[in-house]
């Protein structure tokens, strides 16, 4: 169990800080670690693509932010993750209402963009081609883009499945 001392501001305007925290949270999940953290959520930020990551603790018994309430209700481990195989990456995403989606990324530029954006990346640093791919992955909510126009950061959302939740057959 890791505890984050101060509340984390998930700010729609501060793309870099928000993306960094998202990537950090994603990687702790991958290590199988529980994280206790509190959030102050910018209402302009659509947090729903993050519901597969450990939700923040409630501020108190009366806390009502509907986005956080939904996040807590939706979360369980193993909802959106990827696995590395020989020459491919497999993604399984159960967040959507239409049942599980599976993707096997076998080729560049998908594979390399997915891997590159594990580290938050400025959208403007991507080539035009890469940006088209990023748009496709954003549409599938495999990436998230946060930040003010001109300062938008993209981050890969699925966590790598290194430690399976128990019992693993529920995943």
């Amino acid at each position: 169990m890791i505890e984050v001392e101060r509340p984390v501001r998930l700010d729609a305007a501060d793309g870099q800080a928000t993306s960094r925290f998202v990537a950090w949270l994603r990687d702790r999940l991958s290590e199988g670690l529980a994280v206790a953290w509190r959030a102050s959520l910018d209402p302009r930020l659509d947090a729903s693509p993050l519901y597969h990551l450990p939700p923040p603790l409630p501020e108190g018994p009366g806390e009502q932010d509907p986005a956080l309430v939904r996040w807590r209700a939706s979360y369980r481990p193993g909802v959106c993750f990827y696995r590395v195989g020989p020459g491919f990456i497999q993604v399984k995403d159960l967040r959507g209402p239409g049942g599980p989606s599976r993707y096997t990324l076998t080729q560049d530029p998908y594979l390399s963009l997915f891997t590159r954006c594990l580290t938050p990346t400025l959208l403007t640093d991507l080539t035009e081609d890469a940006r088209r791919i990023a748009d496709a992955l954003l549409a599938e909510r495999l990436l998230i883009a946060v930040g003010a126009p001109g300062d938008r950061w993209v981050t890969t959302l699925p966590s790598r499945m290194r430690r399976w939740p128990v019992p693993s057959y529920l995943i």
């Binding site: 199988g32 481990p77 019992p167």
Partner: peptide, 16 residues
Amino acid sequence: GVPLRAYARPDAVEVR
């Protein structure tokens, strides 16, 4: 250590 548990809440436990 403790693994992550695959169910969110106790009442969500189900058997394969």
